[in-house]
Design a protein around this nucleic acid. Structure first.
Length: 273
DNA sequence: AGTACGTCCTGATCGC
DNA sequence: TGCGATCAGGACGTAC
C-alpha cells in the first residue's frame, strides 16, 4: 500500500522524470468519481495549460502547484494514491499498464499516468490546498513532529493505539503496515488505549515511527523504483513478520493477528505489552 | 467529542 | 477444474 515512504518515492520519481517544468495539455479521466473537486469539466479545463512548478508531499498527498500567466492565481493539483495508486511519466506512444485509469498529456510528448486498480485514488484541483487537505499532523519526518506534540495528540484518547496511529491528524503518512511496524519495534501492544501509554512509551513509539518511515524512504533511495508501481511492486521495508505461522524475531514465539478497525493487525503477544 | 462501522472498488486468493 | 466467497485497506460519511 502506498504509505509515506511509497508516496515520497513516487514524488521523487516525478521530479526525477522531469515533471516540474512541463505543462499539462489536457486530462483524460477514466473514472469520474476519482475527481473530487471541482466538477469533472472544470477540473479538466482548469488544469489544462498549467505548468508544473514543483512536486511536494504532505502526508500521503502529492501536491503539484501549477502556474499559467493567464491565470489570476496559482492552482494546485492534489493527488492521493489510495491503496493501489501509482504514478509514472511515460511517452504517449508507450503502451500503458492496464490499470492506468487517468492520463495527463504533457507538452513534451509524454504524459503523467495514474494507475489505480481499485479506484480508491482521489484528485482535486484547487486554488488553495487548505480547501481540501484534512487536518494533518506535522510530517513525521520533519522536526516539528515532536514528542510533546505526540503526547498531546494522544491525551484523552481511549481508542486502541493502533487505531490512533492510522488517523492522519495524529500521524500523517502512517498506514496499516508502518503502524504495525512501529508498534512492533517499540514493544507496545496495539490494543492499548492511547491515553494509557506512559511518557516513556510514547517516546519509544515516536522514535520507532520515525525509524520505520526513515528506513522505508532510505531503502527506496538505495534502489529507486522507476515508474513505481508500474508494474505494481513495493519494497519490503518493514521487519515485522506478518505471514500466517510466522515467528517473532525476538522471542521466536508465534505472531498473532487480530482486527482493529477492520484492519489486520499483527503483533507479538509476548514482546508487545 | 470520541469512537465504531459501513462504504467504495477489484485483483488475488481461498475453499468446496 | 471451476466458481463463488472472502480478503486486502485509506479515508470519508454516518451513527451512537
Amino acid at each position: 500500500m502506498p504509505e509515506l515512504p511509497e508516496v515520497e518515492n513516487a514524488r521523487r520519481c516525478l521530479v526525477q522524470a522531469g515533471l516540474p517544468g512541463r505543462t499539462f495539455t489536457g486530462a483524460n479521466i477514466g473514472w469520474a468519481r476519482t475527481v473530487k473537486k471541482p466538477g469533472l469539466e472544470d477540473f479538466v479545463l482548469g488544469l489544462t495549460g498549467g505548468r508544473v512548478k514543483a512536486a511536494h508531499r504532505r502526508g500521503k498527498y502529492i501536491l503539484l502547484p501549477l502556474e499559467n500567466p493567464d491565470w489570476p492565481a496559482e492552482r494546485t493539483l492534489i493527488l492521493h494514491l489510495g491503496m493501489t495508486g501509482g504514478l509514472s511519466v511515460q511517452p504517449k506512444t508507450q503502451a500503458a499498464h492496464p490499470m492506468v485509469r487517468h492520463s495527463f498529456p504533457l507538452d513534451d510528448g509524454r504524459e503523467l499516468r495514474f494507475q489505480d486498480g481499485r479506484k480508491f485514488g482521489k484528485l482535486w484541483l484547487v486554488d488553495d490546498p487548505q480547501e481540501v487537505l484534512p487536518a494533518l499532523s506535522p510530517d513525521p519526518l520533519e522536526k516539528d513532529f515532536t514528542l510533546e506534540y505526540l503526547v498531546d495528540a494522544l491525551a484523552g484518547r481511549n481508542a486502541p493505539i493502533k487505531a490512533l496511529l492510522l488517523e492522519q491528524s495524529i500521524a500523517a503518512g502512517m498506514g496499516n503496515l508502518y503502524a504495525d511496524e512501529a508498534l512492533y519495534l517499540s514493544g507496545i501492544n496495539p490494543m492499548r488505549p492511547g491515553s494509557e501509554l506512559s511518557a516513556d512509551e510514547v517516546a519509544r513509539l515516536r522514535a520507532s515511527m520515525v525509524d520505520a518511515l526513515t528506513a522505508g524512504v532510505a531503502l527506496y533511495d538505495q534502489s529507486r523504483i522507476d515508474n513505481w508501481p508500474d508494474p505494481p511492486r513495493a519494497l519490503t521495508t518493514w521487519t515485522i513478520p506478518r505471514q500466517k505461522g510466522d515467528a517473532c524475531l525476538r522471542c521466536h514465539g508465534p505472531m498473532e493477528v487480530t482486527r482493529i478497525r477492520a484492519r489486520s493487525t499483527w503483533f507479538c503477544p509476548r514482546c508487545q505489552v
